[in-house]
Design a protein around this nucleic acid. Structure first.
Lengths: 98, 98
DNA sequence: TGACTACTTGCGTATTTGCGCAAGTGATGA
DNA sequence: TCATCACTTGCGCAAATACGCAAGTAGTCA
């Protein structure tokens, strides 16, 4: 099939939320880091280069878009990619950006 | 390969521009419409349901992200999807949005 | 219970984005 | 050249977003 299914406005709003999650370089950096394995918030904060509260907010965006998942161990929260399609999508976007 | 390549900040900025282009429901509606074939600005404006200047701005975003291409015929500008990967990416995003 | 670590949330601010409306540009045809 | 159609650009405003900093919450351990 070459033609697209026409979505409802409500569905497009959800799809756009995924787009928004992918619309910030710091969040993309998070995805790249998580591709190597799960990381805590403070680790991500250090690797990406921003403050912990700011990282927490970025992670909330990724999380509510369903791109990352979490696991708690004691006081530490570990984030991971929610699905292999996340990286697949990001790679496609990379090839798309000329 | 499962691990991701770490990009430069400059590259991630370009990738994020693609994300931003995909971050608005009206622009996603444009992509769905263009999946059926090229359309003029006024046609898109009518189909998507917004004013022509607004559509022109949305198209500029999609264009500068490299997602759509144009062809001029007289006074009419026809827009089309720039690449089959655009729709491929959008479909992946659709499956990703739970 | 109290101190500590790890993270989240609230708040104020600067920047960006989407939109409507008006004005500008560019190609066509009388 | 002038009028017209199709589109783009400029401008002002409201809403959304990213950020830093302060405060709050949650789990652990003495």
């Amino acid at each position: 099939m070459t033609s697209a299914t026409i979505s409802s406005e409500i569905d497009r709003e959800r799809f756009a939320a995924v787009g928004r999650a992918l619309a910030d370089p710091k969040r993309l950096c998070v995805l790249e880091t998580l591709a190597a394995g799960e990381r805590s918030v403070s680790e991500l904060s250090r690797d990406v280069g921003c403050q912990v509260p700011n990282m927490s907010q970025h992670l909330a965006v990724l999380r509510s878009a369903g791109l990352v998942a979490t696991r708690r161990d004691g006081t530490t929260v570990y984030y991971r990619l929610a699905d292999s399609r996340v990286l697949e999508t990001y790679r496609l976007i990379q090839t798309l950006a000329r």
